[in-house]
Nucleic acid binder design. Structure first.
Lengths: 194, 194
DNA sequence: GAATATCCGACCCGTTTGTTCCATCACGTT
DNA sequence: AACGTGATGGAACAAACGGGTCGGATATTC
């Protein structure tokens, strides 16, 4: 049925909201079903169990993240703006994902390899994006780097480095300050001295 | 002992953080004790039970709210600025309290009357503050209203009206727009036409 | 009206959780 | 050393919870 897939999607969206707030363990099936205004057992018609819903949610969020990031790049034109936009959106969206990290590190380590697989794939894609941005900026004469590949890897490393304090719930201002610092560092180190 | 009260305060601060994130029901004693790096049963040396901790937390938050609001008023001088500041801070702080509302409306209606008592007291105090602000602004010639008392009540009603959609998780921009709308409405209706 | 898709109330049962009990520790006083 | 006292936490427990199952009800389609 066409409706069945549509309803699965609706479950995913709803569950995503609740999971992101309470984490995997603290979110109950009853809660999800109540949010959907359906009986608890009805959900089992669409999903085998709680874990499968969670995996579908993570997959859904990953796709959404990808979409937002590509949109952020297309939004502006110049390479520095693209990079800046990308980093900002990445940070903002990752902050929302902190709950998933909490959920994962909660206690149930069962999903760990599943998460890791998604993460690895995302890392590969991100590196390609950054590399392209650097490469294009280089060609246009805005950037001036020797090796796009390794420069991209360096940038990605910095971004990853920002995730840890992000998840450790620093103050908003602290986050922004760090973000600006990273940005100016990246740009000052990358921009062609005119 | 002096330390005992101090430790009670520490428990309250820690529990406040966890309650505000997960709500009353989903916060466990074990979690609180782990955050305090103490044994679960040790907490019962300071509080009779979970509910009492929650009540102490709500009381603590209420006092903090009061302090922040009075500070917001003292921060600026002119009556319109005071009112604007008050409303902004009130909205921001109330948004943080939404978790308490969730906790209360969760299922356990036991605390309801306790919350209501605190709320009633806060309402009275707020009305007095607004009334004073209006009154002073009136005297200074910045405002021009007939009856400070009823004007204050009208303003308070508007503020209360904003709580509902606020807790219904609208978009940030929507909130700000509504807030600005309320502010301009209040000011345009209250400011002395020069 | 049979067949099928969708939904749900009631139940099962292992786990969680708030709370109690009691042994222990730290430590100042006698 | 012995003792009292403030403070701690491990163990145990009763009650509630929560994921999942099942049989049947209800809706939809043919």
């Amino acid at each position: 049925m066409v409706d069945k897939e549509e309803y699965r999607a609706r479950i995913i969206r709803t569950a995503s909201r609740i999971f992101s707030h309470y984490g995997f363990r603290k979110t109950t099936m009853d809660e999800i079903s109540r949010a959907l205004k359906k009986g608890k057992s009805s959900i089992y018609y669409y999903f085998p169990g709680k874990e499968e819903i969670f995996e579908a949610v993570v997959l859904y969020e990953a796709n959404q993240l990808r979409r937002r990031l590509t949109a952020a790049i297309k939004e502006v034109d110049s390479p520095p703006d693209k990079l800046r936009n990308y980093i900002y959106v990445r940070m903002r969206e990752f902050a929302k994902l902190s709950n998933y990290y909490n959920a994962v590190f909660d206690k149930n380590l069962d999903h760990y390899e599943f998460i890791e697989k998604i993460r690895a794939r995302y890392d590969r894609e991100e590196l390609a994006i950054i590399r392209l941005l650097v490469y294009v900026g280089n060609n246009r004469g805005t950037f001036a780097v020797e090796d796009s590949e390794y420069t991209a890897m360096a940038i990605q490393t910095m971004l990853k480095g920002m995730e840890v304090p992000l998840f450790w719930r620093r103050r908003e201002t602290d986050i922004n300050y760090r973000l600006e610092a990273i940005l100016t560092l990246i740009f000052n180190g990358i921009m062609k001295k005119q």
